[in-house]
């Protein structure tokens, strides 16, 4: 395994047209070693989601160096990487509504080329094994986020990008979900980048990158795909 999972140098990204560009990310640099964890802090609109989008190849940076698993970002097959190595967890709606929790995990695992036989195991590990046949609208928000974590770990990821994964949960549930996330991250040894505005959650990561001072109070829109 590479020593450095991720290396970012002088990353820039702005939105808008030629006449009126709004810088979102300006001259950003950081690194993440394997099994390391990094919290992205900052208010809404500070560029957390944009950075995550860039890190999984859904958006391209304007300038700067980005090396992921030792590969320059311009040479990366992002599609394959997202399928097999990068797991993404959103604040909500991580599950296909028409599929049961287990089928969701199976779908994600099969896309990543992982065996479906381990899917029930991941649900058990996340304490929702008994709910495997339920549909997303039949379980609580916390259980949905656990299922989302099961999906991510079922693909055996090298890097997890989590965008406010506990953002819409109450304190207790949020702590439970966060516990599971950090525990399994430690066990599997994958990298974790977690965007949050919750300082307590951020403090559980090895490093914190505060984007607040980098971006003005510009609203770049909602966390979009």
């Amino acid at each position: 395994m590479e020593d450095n999972v991720l290396k970012v140098r002088g990353l820039r990204k702005s939105f808008g047209d030629r006449d009126a560009t709004v810088p979102v990310l300006a001259d950003l640099s950081f690194e993440l070693h394997s099994a390391g964890s990094l919290a992205l802090m900052g208010r809404s609109g500070s560029g957390k989601s944009t950075l995550l989008n860039i890190l999984c190849g859904l958006e391209q940076p304007d300038a700067g160096e980005l090396t992921l698993f030792g590969q320059d970002h311009r040479q990366i097959d992002w599609q394959q990487l997202r399928r097999e190595r990068i797991g993404v967890v959103f604040q909500e709606a991580n599950l296909m509504p028409a599929l049961s929790l287990l089928d969701n995990v199976r779908l994600r695992a099969s896309l990543a080329g992982q065996p479906e036989s381990r899917c029930q195991h991941w649900l058990d590990v996340l304490d929702i094994g008994a709910l495997a046949q339920r549909f997303p609208d039949q379980v609580s928000g916390g259980q949905r986020q656990r299922a989302a974590l099961a999906m991510v770990f079922a693909m055996s990821p090298s890097l997890i990008l989590a965008d406010e994964p506990t953002g819409s949960l109450d304190r207790v549930t949020a702590d439970d979900v966060a516990d599971s996330l950090f525990r399994l991250q430690a066990e599997t040894g994958c990298g974790l980048i977690l965007a949050t505005h919750d300082p307590e959650l951020a403090s559980r990561c090895e490093k914190i990158l505060d984007l607040a001072h980098q971006a003005a109070d510009q609203n770049t829109g909602q966390s979009g795909l």
């Binding site: 909500e92 709606a93 509504p97 997303p136 609208d137 819409s168 979009g224």
Partner: peptide
């Protein structure tokens, strides 16, 4: 085009099964 994430209530807009 960018997709808007289904709203907080989750099961209502687009979350039907």
């Amino acid at each position: 085009r960018p997709a808007v994430r289904p709203s907080v209530t989750g099961t209502i807009t687009g979350g039907e099964r």
